[in-house]
Write a protein that binds this DNA or RNA. Sequence first.
DNA 1: CAGTGAGCGAGCTTCCGCTTGACTT
Length: 761
Amino acid sequence: MTKNLVIVESPAKARTIARYLGSEYEIKSSFGHIRDLPKKGLGVDVEKNFEPTYEVSPDKKKVVAELRKAAKGSTVWLASDEDREGEAIAWHTAELLGLDPQNTKRIVFHEITKPAITAAVANPRTIDMKLVNAQQARRVLDRLVGYELSPVLWKKVRTGLSAGRVQSVAVRLIVEREREIRDFKPESSYKISATFDTGGQELLAELEEKLSDSAGARSFLESIKASSFSVKDIEEKPGTRNPSAPFTTSTLQQEAARRLGFSVRQTMSVAQRLYESGNITYMRTDSTNLSGIAIDAAKKYIHSTFGEKYSQVRQYKTKDSSAQEAHEAIRPTSVGKLSAGADDQQKKLYELIWRRTLASQMAPAAINKTEVKIAISDRKELFIAIGEVITFDGFLKVYGGGKEDKILPSVKKGQELKLSIASAIETFSRPPARYSEAGLVRKLEALGIGRPSTYAPTISTIQDRGYIEKSDVEGEERQVKELVLQSGKIEEKSEMVRVGADRNKLLPTHLAEVVTDFLMKYFSQIIDYDFTARAEEEFDDIAEGKIEWQATLKNFYDKFHPLIKESGKATRAEASQARTLGKDPKTGLPVVVRFGRYGPVLQLGDSEDENQKLRFAPLPADLRMEEVTLEQALPMFQLPRVVGKTEEGEEITADIGRFGPYVKVGAKFISIKGKDPFSITEVEARKTIVEQAQKTKDRVAADFGKIKILRGPYGPYVTDGKKNARVPKDTDESKITETEAKELLDKAPAKAKYPRRKRKS
DNA sequence: CAGTGAGCGAGCTTCCGCTTGACTT
């Protein structure tokens, strides 16, 4: 009997398929791509028709060796995914195994079900070189862009930086959004609400239109003091709501962030474990399609659990035309399994996937919207009260949005209403929202930029490179006016409200702004939002055999490469956005602000003059490079400032460093956050120094020489200067002996099980 | 995670997309 070797991309997939194919089939996995351009060097001969040099990826040497061994004397079936990348994987595999691409069996299936696999094996084709070439074009284009663009940044901005078709657009989106928010001028208007008494029950209504200023709001309230109110009209509007499509990678990331508070990376790693344990289908997909088997199973489950009227079979079409549909939507492998997962996070994510999948096959919810229009006796404006009641829950039974019914008290047309209270509250128009991780993924997907397998890594990359930071924004206090009409009197109140506060959002660094501005100036075509979409069209044409892949690359490169040359003419001063603020009146030297190696920096002196010793000072954290003035910059060069002496006669100086203002005595730095290094007095400084000394002393619970027991912000711990070990909760840290301390240190797990991702400062 | 404080002249960096595995600072 002939031996058969089937090669798929994922080992979990291999295991599943093994169940459906007989024992005469051996299934192995390639673990994704096995061959690529070299990491070092361009790996593309631009002079010789863009000939790529491929080599086995270092971490795939073992895999390739195993595949070679298994392929000996076997019929090989290449079963990588049915998309551009999968076709390329099949081709690279054939090449490495010495198989003839024209003659090797290539099979595909986009759902892992027995009928799909049996059908695939019965209908093998050969490798589609046109599709492979579309992948090569994609790969080489990305390499050319990334590896020619990045070095320009090393020269002009900072070494080690990176740029690319995907990441640079992601950064640009965040930079531009932040600038929109910064430039946003909020407009104030007044929302008028009124509460009516319907005889026991309250009816809450709002004036149809907002009023533009407080004078208008006041005169409106004045004018209705003596008015009478009546129900003019009651309108019932029945409506329906449909469930969302089953999850793709991007929608799963969004919902897991919204409902479970997961980060994009966390969602992917939890989903990966659910996939490996066989509980869900593949988690990196852009398809909303469900297999026929899954739809049937959901239908049966819904019929028997909720009844037939809750069922509605739906086939979802993925709307994005760039979707490659190699997989199904993300769904439970078995709808009958209500709960799965090895830990709490897995259980929660599984449940979310289960609910979404089931809901997608359920009936729409029916909603009854009621609108009550209330007339004012002597004015033509109307108050409107809106109620919303779910009359049939449908899919909401399993995938609700947490919206509660708003039930209006029953009123009749023409009924008189008594006004209990009316108010005018100042509201402000809001700037566009900052991107969250999942929000950025959604935007990238909408632009067709990036793929399901790269969304999470892209977000990490732009943070690792120091372009983007995930953080909170404090917002600002704003005075908000409110006018209240009650018992015939108008009272004015005002309240401080915090606006613009934001949690866990993506913010651009100064570096991101400098790099984006530079790229926009010299490479606007590349970081254009449509660049990828246009490139995709060309890749499609290659896949359809309309154009030749290397000609496409030549066409691109002939336009792109001159831009690299052109950008070489940019001076460092231009790239770093150097700006002369004026002259220092004392020395006559120019004062310059620019983006330096470590961030924004103020400089005293001329960079061109080699004999001059330049002086540097940090740009105060609350100022922006483009708005700092000479007056704000000059004092910074007065630092470090001699404050005085300690009682022991040591000199105290004050300065501003990376982490804010500090005073320094000898080699000791003491933070003075909240105080001003320009004006802090000797007395204050001495006090802070003494307090700090006491604090450090208090931190020490025991001192055995090299080993110490300290009280940190997270509780007491033992340290030998290198390794730390937590003191058990029920132990009194001041009673630990040296031997016990040593034991704790020995027992403690080695530092950081997983290496921290490196961060450029 | 456990308290940080550099300063513009050196040894190399980088892309996107496919997949999972994991000892060292």
